[in-house]
Design a protein around this nucleic acid. Structure first.
Lengths: 151, 151
DNA sequence: TAGTCTATCTATAAATC
DNA sequence: TGATTTATAGATAGACT
C-alpha cells in the first residue's frame, strides 16, 4: 500500500523497519478497534516492539476475560486441538501459572499476599470440586486455617 | 475500502455484519502476521465473534509470554499507569487468577492437580522472597510436606 | 523519532455467481 | 451460504520535515 509492493520478510534497514513498525502498528490497532465496534466482537491485541516497548488494545470486556476463552475452545474443538503443531500458540495452564508467578514478583505489600491467599482458596475450591484430590483437599483446609488465625 | 464509506458503528443488518466480520477478521489476522514478520515484533491477537467463536494469532513466542509484559510495563511507565481510566484494559493480578481458576475447572485428572502443586510451590517461593509474609512461609512448608509424602 | 504529503497498493463493500 | 468480481475507500512506502 505504498509506492511499491513489499515482500513479507524482515525489513533489514533499521530505520525503515522502525518507521514501518510505527505506521503498521497504529493501523493494526485502529483496525482492531473498528472490527470490535462494527461487528460487536471481542478483540484483544498486544504488540511488543523489538526493543520491548508495549502497545495494546482490547474491546469492552477485559483482556483477561477474552483470553480465558482461548484454551477452552481449542480443547473443545477437535479441528483446533493440534493448533500448536500448526505453529499457533495458545495459553496452557502452565503458561498461565508462569504469568501469575510473574505478577507475584510485583506483590510487594502484605496486603497483596492476603489477597493471594483468598484467590488461592477459590482456586482450590474449584480444583477440589473437579479432581477430588486428597492433596488439594488438605491444602484447602490448611489455607482456611491460615486465614482464620490471621497469623 | 469498498463501494462506499462506512461509519464505524455497529452494523445493524445481521447478514452484512457477519460478512464484514469474516472479511475484516481475516484481514486483521493477516496484518498481525505481516507486522510481526516485517518488524520482528511480538504480536498476540484474539478475536471472539458475537456468537462466541474464537480466532487467534500469535507470533513466534507464546501468547502468555507476550501478555505477561502488559502489566509490568504499564506499572513501570508513569504515563500509562492510568490506562484503565483512559478506557484501555490491562491484565491485573486478580484477572489472571480468574483465568487460572477457569483453567482449574478443566483440570480433571489427578496428574493436573500434582502439576498445580508444583507450580504453586514456585509461586509461593517468589511471593515469599518479596513479601516475607508469615502466612506464605507456613503455606510453602505445607506444600512441600504434601509433595514429599505423596499422599 | 514522530508528523505530513502523495502515489500507489491493498482491503473490502456491494454485486454477482 | 460461500466463492469470485469489481469499484472504491483506506492504508502505507518513500520522501521530506
Amino acid at each position: 500500500m505504498g509506492r511499491r509492493k513489499v515482500e513479507i520478510k524482515r525489513i533489514e534497514d533499521k530505520i525503515s523497519r522502525q518507521v514501518t513498525f510505527c505506521k503498521r502498528r497504529n493501523g493494526l490497532l485502529e483496525k482492531a478497534r473498528q472490527l470490535s465496534i462494527l461487528c460487536e466482537s471481542s478483540v484483544a491485541l498486544v504488540i511488543v516492539s523489538s526493543t520491548g516497548k508495549l502497545y495494546s488494545f482490547s474491546s469492552g470486556e477485559s483482556m483477561a476475560k477474552i483470553l480465558s476463552r482461548v484454551e477452552i475452545q481449542q480443547a473443545d474443538d477437535p479441528e483446533t486441538s493440534d493448533l500448536a503443531e500448526k505453529g499457533m500458540n495458545y495459553l496452557s495452564q502452565k503458561e498461565l501459572l508462569e504469568i501469575v508467578q510473574c505478577k507475584l514478583e510485583e506483590a510487594k505489600s502484605d496486603n497483596a499476599s492476603i489477597d493471594f491467599l483468598k484467590s488461592l482458596e477459590e482456586q482450590l475450591k474449584t480444583a477440589l470440586s473437579v479432581t477430588r484430590d486428597r492433596k488439594t483437599e488438605l491444602m484447602m483446609d490448611f489455607v482456611k486455617t491460615l486465614q482464620e488465625k490471621e497469623c
